[in-house]
């Protein structure tokens, strides 16, 4: 594929669509709005098609490990079998409502997802424990602010002293909120800068080899 087709055409299409979507957002002309809806629909359809690619990649990688009897290969086989079962039962009429599919979804998939989600509680504890080691001034500030916020949210805080919830609420509503808003403003400005680079065709990381030798 020539460099023109590979980089220039996607750059032009990306820049033109970015500009179009921007105009469509600000100027309420029905024909522009309709075009914007069409473009968004295209995006959804293209994204849906790539799910097939995801399945292909998954099957391909798993089969490769199974064929060469790689480490833990039975688990990869098990994963493939389960994927096939879910796809087949999911496509059986009434689509995604078949009792086997629903049983597997509700009793296996959902429960496992919830179990993984619950692990976060332990990870939050270990991460907080590390973060709360007052090794520097900044981490000491995190520790002190954290203690007040935790005690504010726990009933014991108010029982120890009525001042604790006042300080904890102030930490959450003033420095924490101000910091978060500053970051959100920074993110917004960063997105504008990225948008300008995209419209001008200088954001090329997504075009495979387009940044012109970023690595040195």
């Amino acid at each position: 594929m020539s460099s023109f087709v590979r980089t220039q055409v996607p750059l032009f299409v990306g820049a033109a669509l970015t500009f179009y979507m921007l105009v469509e957002f600000f100027i309420p002309v029905p024909i522009l709005t309709q075009g914007g809806v069409e473009i968004r629909t295209w995006g959804v359809i293209i994204a849906a098609f790539t799910m097939g690619l995801g399945v292909t990649t998954l099957v391909d990688n798993n089969l490769r490990i199974i064929r060469r009897r790689g480490r833990n290969w039975p688990y990869y086989l098990y994963s493939l079998i389960l994927m096939c079962v879910m796809i087949v039962t999911g496509l059986m009429p009434p689509m995604t409502k078949h009792f086997v599919f629903l049983w597997l979804y509700n009793n296996a998939f959902s429960r496992l997802a919830q179990a993984m989600y619950s692990i976060l509680a332990f990870f939050i504890t270990t991460a907080t424990f590390r973060a709360f080691r007052a090794t520097t001034f900044a981490s000491a500030c995190v520790l002190v602010a954290g203690i007040f916020v935790i005690l504010t949210l726990a009933p014991i805080g108010a029982a120890i002293s009525p001042v604790i919830p006042v300080i904890g609420t102030w930490v959450q509503n003033v420095p924490n909120l101000a910091g978060m808003r500053a970051i959100v403003i920074g993110v917004g400005i960063g997105i504008v800068a990225l948008g300008v680079r995209t419209i001008l065709g200088y954001e090329r990381g997504h075009l495979a080899g387009g940044t012109g030798g970023g690595a040195t």
Partner: peptide, 30 residues
């Protein structure tokens, strides 16, 4: 890379005047 840093990293890596200019412009916007 938190917040705006994530968007600036592309310009930082490429070192192209136009890309770096977008970061400097971001400072004025700030």
């Amino acid at each position: 890379l938190i917040g705006e840093e994530l968007f600036a990293v592309g310009a930082y890596i490429s070192k192209e005047p136009i890309s770096v200019g977008t970061i400097g412009g971001g400072d004025i916007a700030r």
